[in-house]
Amino acid sequence: MSQQTKLQTPRAAVNRLGSARSGTLHAWRQRLTSFALLPLTFAFVAILVSLVGRDFESARALLGSPCPAILLILFIGAGAWHMALGMQMVIEDYIPGEHAKTLALMTNALFSVAVGLAAVYAVLRLSFT
C-alpha cells in the first residue's frame, strides 16, 4: 500500500474514522449518567419495595404521585441513556462484521429510546389519569 498509488490525501483517508476532540465524549456521558443513576437507583428500589402488598388502586396512587413519578422518570431517562451507551461498547467489542455491527448499533439506539419512552409514557399516564 504505497502512498503514491492513492489519490486520497492522508487526511481524507482517516476523516470521520476516529477521535476529533470527541474521543472522551462517550466515556464522559457514561460517567455522567452513572453518577446520576447512583442515587436514582436507590430511590427506584425504595419505590419498588413500597409497592409490595399494594392492590391495583393503591399501587397506581403511589406510582402516579408527584415525587415517585418524577424520580421514576429521571431513573428511566438516565437509565435508558446509560444502557444505550453501555450496550454500544459491548457491540463495538464483540460484533466483528461492519454491516452486522451497524445494524446492532442502530437496533440498540432505537430499542433504548423506545423502551425508555414507553416506560415514561406509562408513568405519565399513571400521573394524569
Binding site: A59, G79, M87, V115, A119, A122, L126
Partner: peptide, 22 residues
C-alpha cells in the same frame, strides 16, 4: 459487563410492568 447486559434486558420488564399498572 454481564450485569449491565442483564439489566438492559430487565428494562423491558420494568416498562412492561409500568404499562400494566397504567
Amino acid at each position: 459487563r454481564l450485569t449491565g447486559i442483564a439489566l438492559y434486558v430487565g428494562t423491558l420488564g420494568l416498562a412492561a410492568y409500568l404499562l400494566a399498572a397504567a
